[in-house]
């Protein structure tokens, strides 16, 4: 499959990029691992691509004054996964970055690209020729969903691995547009609508990712379950940030974020509430895991039933809490707390 023709530019500044992106039918090119597939399939045929990797410093990882991290969107997933700054204190982000299309995609794809990943489904992500006889679905501008007959919304899955850990850590993103900058929690970046997954507007670029310093006595885990050991999306991804009271070992706070189970990254709020303020024991772990599975409503996508997804959510949540708990007991969590 050949790429369609497009105009191509390499802006030198963010401002330049934004004004290019404000023009009709223009897409950001970063790693290209999602975009170029869609272009080859003619799933989308934008008029112009704007390569943001030409903008200086957009691939930097820096410590911020408040002890957090600031990561440029053009940072490759491999750079994020191997950077000591990320690995040492935000290990769950490094794990997730390395797991995206493991082992090769991380060398090409960027963190910003993963955050801006579009929803995926077996009907939308097909070639134009494949779709000849299909009426357009919500995501293609139509009024129906092929995955769930009769559904009143798009059910494309949000599958980006790095997002659940970043939300668990309370990350923020900066959106730069022709009219200036907006900062928002990453959690709010997502609309929950499969057809338009995030709030980016024409002329806007996701220009920075900030992760605050992890709370004292916190520890994080990202677990991904996929059907194949490599080159695969998650069936379920579970990120957990667990903060433990150093005095009595109770759970001070827990943030549980699930990927690949809905049209957006999903906080398992009932599970979080169950853990918060409680003394950790095996019974609590099981309760939280069961709640996480119950409070989600996954849709059966090809080859993976909703029932199976629930089972995996339960299992991974259980394992994530146990692992974080073990790490906390071993004192290997955030250095602010334990060192």
């Amino acid at each position: 499959m050949r790429l369609p023709r497009f105009e191509y530019s390499e802006p030198g500044t963010l401002e330049e990029a934004c004004s290019l992106l404000a023009q009709a039918d223009t897409k950001v090119l970063a790693g290209g691992t999602e975009l170029l597939v869609k272009l080859k399939q003619k799933t989308i045929t934008p008029r112009a691509l704007v390569n943001i990797k030409s903008i200086p410093h957009l691939d930097r990882i820096e410590e911020t004054e408040d002890g957090g991290l600031s990561i440029g969107p053009a940072t490759t997933l491999h750079a994020a996964a191997t950077s000591p700054l990320v690995r040492d204190r935000f290990g769950l982000v490094a794990e997730a970055a390395a797991a995206v299309g493991k082992p090769r995609i991380p060398y090409m794809a960027t963190l910003g690209g993963n955050l801006c990943l579009d929803g995926r489904c077996f009907y939308y992500n097909q070639s134009l020729l494949w779709k000849q006889s299909l009426p357009p679905c919500y995501k293609d501008g139509g009024h129906l969903c092929h995955v769930v007959q009769g559904s009143d919304h798009c059910n494309a899955l949000f599958v980006a691995d790095t997002v659940p850990p970043l939300i668990a850590l309370g990350a923020e993103v900066t959106l730069t547009g022709v009219d200036g900058e907006t900062r928002m929690p990453l959690e709010d970046f997502y609309t929950g609508r499969g057809e338009e997954v995030n709030v980016l507007q024409p002329g806007q670029v996701l220009s920075r990712i900030r992760i605050p310093a992890p709370p004292p006595y916190s520890t994080g885990v990202y677990l991904k379950h996929s059907l194949r050991e490599a080159i695969d999306f998650a069936v379920v991804g579970v990120a957990l940030l667990l903060t433990v009271s150093p005095e009595d070992g109770t759970c001070r706070d827990a943030r549980v974020v699930l990927g690949s189970v809905a049209t957006r990254p999903l906080r398992a709020v009932a599970a979080e509430a169950a853990l918060r303020g409680k003394a950790l024991d095996e019974g609590l772990v099981r309760t939280a895991a069961t709640l996480a599975a119950k409070e989600t409503h996954p849709v059966s996508h090809l080859g993976v039933s909703a029932t199976y997804k629930r089972r995996v959510i339960e299992t991974l949540t259980k394992r994530a809490v146990r692992q974080a708990w073990r790490q906390a007991v071993a004192g290997s969590g955030s250095r602010e707390g334990w060192r």
Binding site: L3, Y8, L29, G32, T33, L36, V37, N51, H78, R104, I105, Y107, M108
Partner: peptide
């Protein structure tokens, strides 16, 4: 670095 050259411009 190894890359998939089918997905690089």
């Amino acid at each position: 670095r190894p890359v998939y050259s089918c997905l690089v411009l």
